[in-house]
């Protein structure tokens, strides 16, 4: 279980960001999580209330966007989803590919005033 430790870091970062930018209230926090990231969105959501308790984000909504695990095939250049295609290029069946995205764990944006 590492989601709680990581989400506490996120909350600290956002609080810091809010202070520096003189924001008074954060309505929504938007995270982007790659399909291959070791962060499980369901667990992030589960421990979020504990992480924001007593912080400036206490009433901030959490939104999570999932980024697909897309790769480009080194043989034929097709772009495909690694998970859906079981790590094999659906076009030429090659197993040699380069991951384009899917490992991210990003703070995308906040909605604030």
């Amino acid at each position: 279980m590492h989601e709680l430790g990581v989400i506490i870091e996120v909350v600290k970062y956002v609080e810091d960001f809010a202070k520096k930018n003189k924001l008074t209230k954060i309505d929504t926090l938007v995270l982007q999580i790659g399909e291959l990231s070791a962060m499980i969105p369901r667990y992030i959501e589960a421990c979020y209330p504990a992480a924001v308790d007593g912080t400036m984000l206490q009433d901030t909504q959490l939104k999570i966007e999932i980024l697909p695990a897309n790769a480009i095939c080194r043989e034929c250049g097709s772009v495909f989803n690694v998970i859906q295609n079981n790590k094999v290029c659906p076009n030429c069946k090659s197993e040699v590919w380069e991951l384009l995205c899917g490992r991210e764990f990003m703070i995308k944006e906040i909605v604030a005033y």
């Binding site: 930018n21 990003m106 703070i107 995308k108 944006e109 909605v111 604030a112």
Partner: peptide, 10 residues
């Protein structure tokens, strides 16, 4: 309200 882009990898 305004949307502020952060784009910071955790």
């Amino acid at each position: 309200y305004k949307i502020i882009e952060i784009k910071e990898s955790i």
